[in-house]
Structure formats: C-alpha cells, structure tokens
C-alpha cells in the first residue's frame, strides 16, 4: 500500500494551467489523456523542462492528479522536479506554460536550461 508514496513527491498545476491543458487535450482529440512532464539532461551544462502529451504510462512513471489533469513524471525527473508547480502565463503578445521549481538554483541567460 502506498499512501506514503504520494507524500514523497508532488507535482501540481495551477487552476489556469489545468484549464489550458484540458483545452489542449480536447483540441487534440484526447480529452481523457495525460500530460507528461520531465527534464532532459545534457551533461553538466544543465537540464531543461519537457512538456508533452502522454499516450502511455510506464512502470517507472509516477502519476499525479491536479485539478483533474493527470500529470505523468518518470522517477528520475521527479528527483529534480519534486514540488514543482506548473503555471500558465499570458502576456499581451505571447503565452505558455511555466515551471516553478523550488529545487531550481540557476538558469542560463536565455532561460532555456537550468540547474538544481
């Protein structure tokens, strides 16, 4: 039994991010689908966030529910994403999802890669 499992990690979305994700899943024709979040690594020069539609959940994946959206994270990524809040931001001329990660310590100049 794993009530403890859920306590060991958490990935959440803000309500507006969940609403946007739901809209995009609907548009894609997979309204019941999940969203995969993760990191890609590149040696020591940093990592970057990954956000994809998810069609299959693997054994080493963990699944979180946030405002009705299933968020799938592989265990390795969870190590550096634990506690992350995914938000959706709208400026006048651009919009998109933003990762608020308490473990994140530095970012490269352009904001595309980070370190923990």
């Amino acid at each position: 039994m794993s009530t403890a499992t859920q306590q060991q990690g958490s990935i959440t979305m803000t309500e507006r991010a969940a609403a946007r994700a739901r809209e995009m899943l609907g548009k894609r024709g997979t309204p019941e689908g999940a969203i995969r979040i993760g990191v890609t690594t590149a040696g020591c020069s940093g990592m970057s966030y990954k956000l994809e539609f998810c069609d299959s959940v693997a054994a080493e994946d963990r699944v979180f529910d946030s405002h009705g959206i299933r968020l799938v994270v592989d265990e390795k990524s969870l190590l550096v994403l634990n506690g992350t809040l995914v938000d959706f931001e709208t400026a006048q001329f651009r919009s998109g999802f933003k990762f608020i990660n308490p473990l994140e310590k530095e970012r490269c100049g352009c904001g595309e890669s980070f370190k923990v």
Binding site: R36, G46, L51, G96
Partner: peptide, 18 residues
C-alpha cells in the same frame, strides 16, 4: 526572460537552445 512552453507531441519536445 521566462521561457514559456507549449505542450508538445510525445518525443518532439525541443532540446534547450533549439
């Protein structure tokens, strides 16, 4: 500058600086 992401199709998420 904050990077704002879109949800990508599986396996197509861009690498950093792409």
């Amino acid at each position: 500058m904050d990077v704002l992401l879109d949800i990508a199709e599986p396996g197509t998420a861009p690498k950093p600086h792409d």
